[in-house]
């Protein structure tokens, strides 16, 4: 009996090393449950470096998830995930944790960026896998309702490899005298700092086209 106990204890020290390897292979659902196994498991699973390891491993498996949005005739909305294997067979329905957030700005690594119904002020970041969401603070340039019709907003969401974090970009356009829409102000929200900051755009006088189009995020730049 002594030997077995010794063995399991010596195994235990090894497991500390290997544990990361094992846990990184588990689906998110199991990880969420296993947070409550031990304190050390909790700190390991919620550790940013572990999350990165897990994310990279999941990405390298090349299992693509498809996000489907339904708009029912009665006004109900529903989001659903499916992947290559279960396509057409199984839809995992995701319940919106909130009302009035409907427009999808973009998604990156399983994070979704949603916009409120009127598409102007409020942005929500949502991680459906862990059922957590975060309402972004109002940006510094809130406008009065009276002026709102003169302005238009475009959003972009993605992962910035330069700063290693997720960012939301907000581009405000204003109509000029010739009824063209020109870039008026650009603001950036970094998840790492949790705040908006305004970017100097200099003499950028591009016109904005395509009102309701969604920007595409590639390699850290919104197009």
């Amino acid at each position: 009996m002594t030997t077995t106990t010794k063995k399991s204890v010596s195994n235990a020290c090894i497991l500390e090393d290997v544990l990361v390897e094992i846990l990184a292979r588990l689906p998110v659902k199991s990880l969420l449950r296993f947070r409550s196994v031990y304190k050390s498991w909790y700190s390991l699973i919620t550790n940013p470096s572990f999350i990165t390891t897990h994310l990279n491993r999941t990405k390298s498996n090349h299992i693509h998830k498809l996000l489907i949005k339904f708009n029912y005739e009665n006004g109900d909305r529903c989001l659903s995930f499916t992947d290559d294997k279960t396509f057409r067979d199984e839809f995992v329905k995701l319940d919106y944790p909130f009302q009035n957030y409907d427009k999808i700005v973009g998604s990156s690594d399983g994070l979704l960026c949603l916009l409120d119904y009127y598409g102007s002020e409020y942005v929500v970041l949502w991680n459906p896998s862990i059922r957590r969401f975060m309402k972004l603070p109002k940006s510094c340039s809130s406008v009065t309702k009276a002026r709102r019709h003169l302005l238009r907003f475009d959003f972009g969401f993605g992962f910035d490899h330069m700063s290693n974090g997720y960012k939301v970009v907000k581009i405000m356009g204003a109509k000029d005298n010739h009824r063209h829409c020109v870039v008026h102000r650009v603001e950036l929200f970094a998840l790492s700092t949790g705040s908006w900051r305004s970017i100097c755009i200099g003499d950028l006088c591009y016109e904005l086209y395509g009102f309701d189009s969604l920007p595409t995020f590639m390699n850290g730049a919104a197009h």
Binding site: A12, L15, L19, I22, R25, L26, S30, R33, V37, Y38
Partner: peptide, 23 residues
């Protein structure tokens, strides 16, 4: 990972008892 994927927290605690003692 496949073995423990669907297991309950209680089950994992028993399985990794050695680890807990080590802690």
């Amino acid at each position: 990972a496949e073995m423990i994927k669907g297991k309950s927290v209680h089950h994992i605690r028993i399985q990794f008892l050695g680890y807990q003692l080590f802690e």
